[in-house]
Simulated assay, not measured.
Amino acid sequence: MPFLSKYLEYVAPGFKDKIIFTEEKVEGFDAVIATGSNNTARYFEYYFRGKPSIIRNNRNSIAILTGNETVEDLKNLSEDIFRYYGLGCRNVSKLFVPEDYDFNSFFEAMYHWHPIIEKAKYANNYDYNKAVYLMSEFDILENGFFMIKEDKSYASPIATVFYEKYNNLQTLKEKLHADKNQIQCIVSKGCFENEIDFGETQKPQLWDYADSVDSVKFLLSI
């Protein structure tokens, strides 16, 4: 970050002397934008209480599949899953699928990402998580570089995507609405309001603010 700030000052001199990095207690501030884990967010909310703030915590992105997706849709979905090794909050970490969903087409569409297993750190995570799942006798589906596991959690580890089955789209919509503070993006095709197209999660527009909070409006209101 210090390097990036210096570069920003170079290309936009107006920022010079306006960016400070510190490990000391933060004092004398007017407002706060902070990000961290769910646990960290609780400390931030307490520490910065009484000041205008945007406190961001863990969020994950999900995809809703119906079984009617085209091969192109699923290939685009692979971008949402694997780009940046799946580490971002806009990466799809969980699928919602119908009870009778057949994963064969899904795995076929993912396969062109198989060279990712040649990356040592990714491969180490794949091997570790697979070993944990097998030793724990969890049911998984995998193709040699990627696993899916039925799980109610939204956050999945590297090289894994969780999935959950649904019977009724309306019931699913109600669940996702209740869990909205855990979700960053919803990828689907004609299933959900404010959905994002397959393959587009890592291409946010300028107005696609994180957590749907307008940061510019917040700053202008201070």
Rank of each mutant, 00 (worst) to 15 (best):
E118V: 03
F146D: 00
V132S: 01
I140P: 02
D100H: 14
A12H: 14
F82P: 03
T40M: 12
Y111L: 03
R42I: 13
Y128M: 15
N58S: 14
P2C: 10
E150T: 08
Y126L: 05
E142C: 08
N168F: 05
T201P: 03
T66E: 07
N60F: 08
K25E: 13
F96L: 09
R56V: 11
K175G: 03
K94F: 05
T201E: 03
V187N: 02
N58K: 14
P52W: 11
Y209S: 09
E45R: 15
L134G: 01
S93N: 08
K18P: 02
F96T: 04
D80H: 06
E200Q: 14
K189V: 01
D80G: 07
D100S: 15
I81G: 01
E99I: 08
S188L: 09
N76I: 01
K203E: 13
H177S: 12
I158K: 06
E79C: 07
I33P: 00
N124F: 13
T171L: 12
K94W: 03
H177T: 11
N68R: 14
P115H: 06
K51M: 08
Y85V: 02
A178C: 01
P52S: 09
E164Y: 00
L74G: 07
S188R: 08
N68H: 12
D214R: 07
D214E: 06
K175Y: 05
G199P: 07
A120R: 10
L134H: 02
S93V: 08
Y133Q: 09
N181G: 01
I186F: 08
E99P: 02
S78W: 04
I140A: 06
M1T: 12
T171W: 00
L77M: 11
S221P: 00
K217C: 06
A210F: 10
Q170V: 14
S78D: 06
L8H: 04
D179R: 07
N57R: 15
Y154I: 06
Q182V: 00
Y10F: 15
H177A: 13
I196E: 03
K94N: 10
I81A: 04
D100R: 13
A178P: 00
E150Y: 06
L172D: 10
G67V: 03
R83C: 05
I54L: 14
F96P: 04
D211P: 05
H112P: 09
K203F: 13
I222A: 00
I54V: 14
K6Q: 10
K165S: 14
D30T: 12
E150M: 08
E79G: 05
D208H: 12
D80M: 04
R83Y: 14
M147F: 09
L87A: 13
E23L: 08
V161G: 02
K165T: 15
K173E: 12
C191L: 12
T40S: 15
D208G: 02
D30C: 04
K51F: 14
K152E: 14
A63D: 06
Q205C: 09
G14D: 10
T171G: 07
Y101A: 05
I81V: 15
D127L: 11
K203C: 10
L77P: 05
A41D: 02
H112M: 11
A178N: 11
D30M: 04
L206S: 12
V213R: 09
Q202L: 15
E174I: 05
N68I: 00
L172S: 10
G50D: 10
F15E: 01
Y46S: 13
N57S: 15
W113P: 00
E200D: 13
Q170C: 07
E45V: 04
G50Q: 11
F82M: 14
L220T: 05
